[in-house]
Design a protein around this nucleic acid. Structure first.
Length: 788
DNA sequence: GCCTTGAAGTTACCG
DNA sequence: ACCGGTAACTTCAAGGCG
């Protein structure tokens, strides 16, 4: 009866059957079957912290009698590194935990409750050391019929053993479905109460494409046939673009309005709102790829098309671009409808292609931090770090602090040295390997090793942070030290292994993505310590890390100077040094010896340029690649034409080391702009709406443009990017901003683009070469006169 | 009332 | 809902001048 099965975990959840909780593990077996593994033996619990004076036996007795309590155990755990006695209260159902924790807190002898907000299935994963998107072997027997009929799945097993982790790196072949919806929107942003879903486009990982179309604007059949298709194709992962905030919400609303059932999950149910603003689909992983796009900081405007272009996913030619205003017109015009259908299909195709890039990363991230695949991209960086830490805390018997609201607190951060203004040859960019994580490991910095002021410890037992004086126990190794050491060691190990693998093997790709996922978490760990929303927040922890960081970079700078190396610039963990290889080798050796940390050359610049501004430089590296940092070229809130001009100016100046051709070039662009020969799109300025429109205290261009959109029926929620142009007319610049979709080229204020976009970004560089503004603005006649 | 100046508000970058 | 440090823009109000 009992079978041994190997499977990969796709999704987790739970179900209450006959008043008993069952943990559900959805997965794919090594025989490529979709299976559900059910564990009936786990029960939810939380902790109560008794007051010091409390009579534990009486408390235990009292709590045991509360409705829903199965057992109460007195345990000694650790809280912020201090041994702490707690009562572990095991309950019959996850749903009673919130009620019980409030009841328990009311008991006079109880100080507080802990870990009462850990969702049941996460508790299960942590306590059993199970990671999603990993392979496990178990013994179980197959069940069917009765209650289990409700699930659309090949096999269901009742778990008869522990899950045994397997060393298998490559994920199974997953079925992925990409989808995108188009809605009828004659009045702007569509309203599910009245506007039908005219098209649902899909593309799947087996190369199949399907569209569901609302003939005569009747979308009932669209929703029904889409549901049928989802059940028939039975995808493991459903991907969309902005689907958490738009498509799924629209579809569920629309289904309600029409009175049809949206049958999406393996429970044959609709998606439902879940944590981190994502929509959860039972038994499948619903992944919104816009969450992945957020991490692509080089893409300035986060539309699906821009992201696909950046990743080189779609051929640019023959692509149809429709603005929001055009969708319903193309739909209504039967001669143009086929173009809308093609446009819609291209979106689904692009989503599928994006999934090929994003999902491998999401899968590895899920495997590192332990959050389910459908949550891991939706969860913000802070939560990812926290879930990772919680795994280590659990293993050490360290209790999870409660999440609490705290006032914002400031502290001193990193050092940035003023750059040497000018243009220089042969410069090497040196940076410390994972500086902050390394410092946290080296000095055992952490919430559980922190020794508050006035606590008495012998000085030889603590590390003392410079400037700020915060103390941390040298022993035992703390939570952060343990968690970060594993990350850094694993990454090192993987990078070593990668060298032995062929770069086009699946294993290589998987491991390479994994080491990147590890890097993301390691890099975010210091930021987590200074986040007031963190469970383990202690300001001194963040403050000590930056203090040691400042000391480190300062000492490295002194070492370089002592060797006679010119230091051009430095920021946080990096130094730009004169590239003299013997001295650089000596420098690396001395840093290692004196500071006990690794610093490495990261990039060599044949030529590099600094102004007096910090955080801005441009250079050409030893591979001939132009690298611009900080300047407008890399900023999304400047018109593309200004960014183009600045990039070209850098190219001229860095290769020719004089401004002559750059000046000519800028004049030429200005001339073209005056003749309206510059593409309209290059004049669009994009800015993010950081809050709702009425919260803004001053007039600003993108807010004016957003209000314009709103007046025309389009929503402009916080977080949306507003593209606008500046038009001619009276008044302030901010009053003359118009959404680009509503502006004509003839209305554009060319002078604004010359004097406030092109000239400033060019002058930023050219003023260093003593070029004046007039040299850029004079036309050819005047400049010739100048010459003679 | 007009012009200058600096603070405040805002966004997006660096590491 | 990750940190502080930084550049740069526009708006806005205060201050100086007459």
């Amino acid at each position: 009866m009992s079978e041994e099965v190997t499977f990969w975990i796709l999704d987790v959840g739970y179900e209450i059957i006959a008043s008993q909780p069952y943990v559900l593990l959805w997965g794919i077996s090594d025989k490529n079957e979709r299976i559900l593994v059910v564990d009936s033996n786990f029960r939810p619990y939380f902790y109560a912290v008794p007051k010091e004076t409390a009579d534990l036996d009486r408390l235990k007795d009292h709590i045991s009698r509360l409705h829903g309590v199965l057992s109460v155990d007195v345990l000694t755990k650790s809280f912020f590194g201090k041994p702490t006695t707690v009562l572990k209260i095991t309950c019959n159902l996850p749903t009673v935990v919130p009620k019980l924790r409030n009841e328990v807190k009311k008991i006079p002898d109880i100080e507080n409750y802990l870990e009462a907000d850990i969702r049941f299935y996460m508790r299960y994963l942590i306590d059993n050391d199970i990671y999603p998107c990993k392979w496990y072997r178990f013994k179980g027997y197959s069940v069917s019929g009765g209650f289990w009929e409700k699930y659309n799945i090949s096999k269901i097993y009742l778990l008869q053993s522990k899950l045994e982790p397997l060393e298998r790196d490559v994920s199974p072949r997953l079925r992925i479905l990409a989808f995108d919806i188009e809605c009828y929107n004659p009045l702007g942003t569509p309203d599910p109460k009245k506007d039908p879903v005219i098209i649902i486009s899909t593309a799947n990982s087996d190369g199949e494409k399907r569209q569901f179309i609302a003939e005569d604007n009747d979308d009932k059949t669209v929703l029904v046939s889409f549901s049928e298709y989802v059940q028939q194709y039975d995808p493991d992962i459903i991907v969309g673009y902005n689907s958490n905030r738009f498509d799924w919400i629209y579809l569920t609303e629309r289904a309600k309005v029409l009175g049809v059932k949206l049958i999406i999950g393996r429970d044959r149910g609709p998606p439902h709102p879940s944590v981190y603003g994502h929509q959860s689909i039972v038994g499948r992983a619903n992944v919104d790829l816009i969450d992945y796009a957020e991490s692509l900081y080089e893409v300035k405007v986060k539309t699906l098309k821009e992201v696909a272009d950046y990743l080189g996913l779609l051929p640019k030619e023959e692509r149809i671009i429709l603005s929001l205003v055009e969708i319903y017109r193309y739909w209504d015009d039967k001669t143009k409808r086929h173009l809308l259908l093609r446009y819609a299909q291209e979106d689904a195709d692009a989503t599928m292609l994006l999934a090929n890039v994003a999902l491998p990363f999401a899968i590895e991230l899920s495997g590192v931090v332990g959050l389910p695949l459908d949550q891991v991209l939706a969860a913000s960086v802070g939560f990812r770090v926290e879930w990772y830490l919680m795994r280590f805390a659990y293993k050490d018997g360290e209790l999870f602090p409660n999440r609490e609201e705290r006032a914002y607190a400031t502290y001193k951060g990193a050092l940035v040295f003023p750059p040497k203004k000018g243009i220089f040859n042969n410069v090497v960019y040196m940076d410390f390997t994972a500086l902050y994580p390394s410092l946290m490991i080296k000095y055992n910095i952490g919430p559980d090793t922190y020794v508050p002021p006035f606590v008495d410890v012998s000085p030889e037992n603590v590390y003392v942070a410079p400037e700020v004086g915060h103390r941390f126990l040298k022993e035992p190794p703390g939570l952060y030290k343990k968690a970060l050491s594993v990350l850094l060691e694993k990454r090192k190990e993987i990078r070593q292994k990668l060298k032995t693998l062929s770069s086009d093997s699946i294993e290589y790709k998987t491991l390479d993505v994994r080491q990147k996922a590890i890097k993301v978490i390691a890099n975010a760990s210091y930021g987590y310590t200074g986040w007031t929303g963190a469970r383990w927040y202690i300001k001194a922890v963040a403050e000590a890390t930056t203090a040691w960081g400042r000391e480190t970079i300062l000492r490295a700078k002194q070492i370089a100077e002592k060797l006679g190396l010119t230091v051009y610039y430095g920021d946080t963990d990096s130094l730009f040094l004169e590239n003299i290889s013997e001295k650089i080798n000596e420098f690396t050796r001395l840093v290692e010896k004196e500071l006990g940390l690794e610093i490495k050359p990261d990039r060599i610049y044949k030529v590099i340029f600094f102004t007096e501004a910090k955080k801005r430089y441009a250079g050409i590296d030893d591979k001939g690649k132009l690298d611009v940092t900080g300047f407008e070229v890399v900023r999304g809130d400047w018109a593309e034409i200004a960014r183009d001009v600045q990039e070209e100016v850098f190219r001229y100046v860095l290769t020719e080391k004089k401004p002559d051709n750059a000046i000519k070039y800028v004049r030429d662009v200005i001339k073209k702009l005056k003749r309206k020969e510059i593409a309209f799109d290059k004049l669009i300025i994009w800015k993010t709406l950081s809050k709702s429109l009425d919260e803004y205290k001053t007039k600003s261009a993108h807010v004016t443009a957003a209000r314009y959109l709103q007046r025309h029926g389009y929503s402009a929620p916080p977080g949306s990017q507003i593209g606008f142009v500046i038009v001619k007319g009276e008044g302030k610049v901010s009053e003359r901003a118009v959404p680009y979709q509503f502006a004509k080229y003839d209305d554009i204020d060319i002078d604004y683009y010359i004097s406030k976009q092109i000239v400033p970004v060019a002058m930023r560089i050219l003023s260093v070469f003593n070029v004046t503004e007039n040299q850029l603005l004079e036309d050819r006649q005047a400049s010739l006169a100048d010459f003679f």
